[in-house]
């Protein structure tokens, strides 16, 4: 049985696609068969973050409408052969997806892949509901900032009431908190919610903390998921996330600011 994982958040711009790309690639690098699905119909971007935007021929909606087969639409990653990407369409309307046809595609993919990662669009509209409906697990991507935390809580409510698992009275979706754009320095200065604060409010288990990092923009510029930047703090933090998803216990890193020397503290800088 494939594990269906939705990467969701409610709020836009918090790092869903960056996280989907990094985690998907990381799982594939560990030898698992992974497919990444972009559910953001009309605003696809996963292809760009994965660096395969010029290889998109058919998309998710083409498959749904029977205009292409799954194999025609899936793009094999050039770096890792066990990873595929199913791009969203750029033009069709959001109503193309429904529970029945999405369910069929996921079932078909589940025969081949170990992990199905659903990159959710922002918001709580139909597209986001479709992305989370069939999920077994959810990675709730959150920035340490008031509007993001509040929206994450709304999404947690949706996971608990509007998913297939909720409707059929099955075991609930396993929720994971992924805190992104974390700045330990600002937390220490009392300007940013801490990991503990966000955990207290949302009360779901912590999967990872990704520090605010210049590496993320560089990675998206190049179309190389940041997990490939193994020297960077964000790349390492995503690697930890992948290891935790696979069941390892990994200590959390990058939670404290680099200590300033006493000299610079006294004289500023």
């Amino acid at each position: 049985m494939a594990r269906i994982i939705v990467v969701t958040s409610g709020k836009g711009g918090v790092g869903k696609t960056t996280s989907s790309a990094a985690i998907g690639l990381g799982l594939a690098l560990k030898g698992h068969k992974v497919v990444l699905i972009d559910f953001d119909i009309g605003l696809r971007n996963l292809d760009l973050i994965m660096g395969c935007e010029r290889r998109v021929v058919y998309d998710f909606v083409n498959v749904i409408n029977g205009e292409a087969t799954l194999n025609q639409a899936l793009i094999k990653d050039k770096r890792v052969s066990s990873l595929s990407i199913l791009p969203a369409s750029q033009t069709r309307d959001k109503d193309a997806l429904n529970k029945e046809n999405v369910g069929k595609v996921l079932e078909e993919l589940g025969k081949t892949y170990d992990y199905i990662i659903c990159d959710s669009p922002a918001g709580i509209e139909a597209g986001a509901m479709m992305a989370l409906y069939y999920a077994d697990e959810a990675i709730v991507t959150t920035n340490p900032e008031v509007s993001s935390v509040r929206d994450s809580d709304r999404i947690l409510g949706m996971l608990a009431s509007r998913s297939r698992r909720a409707e059929q009275g099955l075991e609930p979706i396993k929720e994971h908190l992924l805190l992104t754009r974390y700045s330990p320095k600002r937390v220490e200065e009392g300007e940013m919610l801490s990991v503990e604060d966000v955990k207290d409010i949302l009360s779901i288990p912590l999967l990872g903390v990704i520090p605010e990092s210049q590496a993320v923009l560089k990675a998206s510029n190049a179309g190389e998921p940041v997990i490939l930047d193994t020297e960077s703090d964000a790349g390492k933090a995503y690697q930890d996330v992948v290891d935790r998803l696979l069941g390892d216990t990994v200590e959390f890193r990058f939670l404290t600011a680099e200590k300033k020397g006493i000299f610079s503290r006294m004289f500023g800088g």
Binding site: R150, D153, M192, L193, S194, D200, I201
Partner: peptide, 22 residues
């Protein structure tokens, strides 16, 4: 009082309120 602690306090109130309505 830091702005982060204000944020936490406000969030705890609004989130509890919204969960209640849910």
């Amino acid at each position: 009082v830091t702005t982060a602690s204000k944020a936490k306090e406000r969030l705890q109130i609004i989130v509890a309120h919204e969960r209640n309505n849910r």
